[in-house]
């Protein structure tokens, strides 16, 4: 039987990160991008918790994971608000067309 070790967690988190990154980079819809970011954050959380469990870091990892979750929630709230505003300004949420940063 395979013992679930740190490597498994890291692989999961890598996959999760990659999916999230993929979503952030490829999705045109801003909401999907946000969701990608959530995935990345969660991948990070998994890493935190995993290293906390297998490393001798005590509960710091868990604590930080909790912080991240809270932050993610807050971020999601603000980001959604921004997306709403973007929608109000540009009448869509397609990130390809919002290239004001260029100017």
């Amino acid at each position: 039987m395979i013992t679930v070790g740190l490597e498994h967690f890291l692989v999961i988190s890598s996959i999760l990160f990659s999916l999230g990154l993929y979503g952030v980079v490829t999705r045109k819809n801003a909401v999907m991008v946000l969701m990608g970011i959530e995935l990345i954050l969660n991948a990070a959380n998994i890493n935190f918790v995993a290293f906390s469990k297998y490393g001798n870091f005590g509960y710091d990892g868990q604590a930080i994971a909790l912080f991240v979750i809270v932050l993610a929630a807050a971020e999601a709230a603000i980001a959604l608000a921004i997306v709403l505003n973007i929608y109000k300004t540009f009448a869509n949420v397609n990130v390809d067309e919002i290239d004001k940063l260029k100017d």
């Binding site: 990154l21 980079v25 990130v95 390809d96 919002i98 290239d99 940063l101």
Partner: peptide, 14 residues
């Protein structure tokens, strides 16, 4: 490189 698209930037970053 400066497309103004956050996503592109991100690709570069990565």
């Amino acid at each position: 490189f400066q497309t103004g698209k956050v996503q592109t930037y991100l690709v570069f970053v990565i």
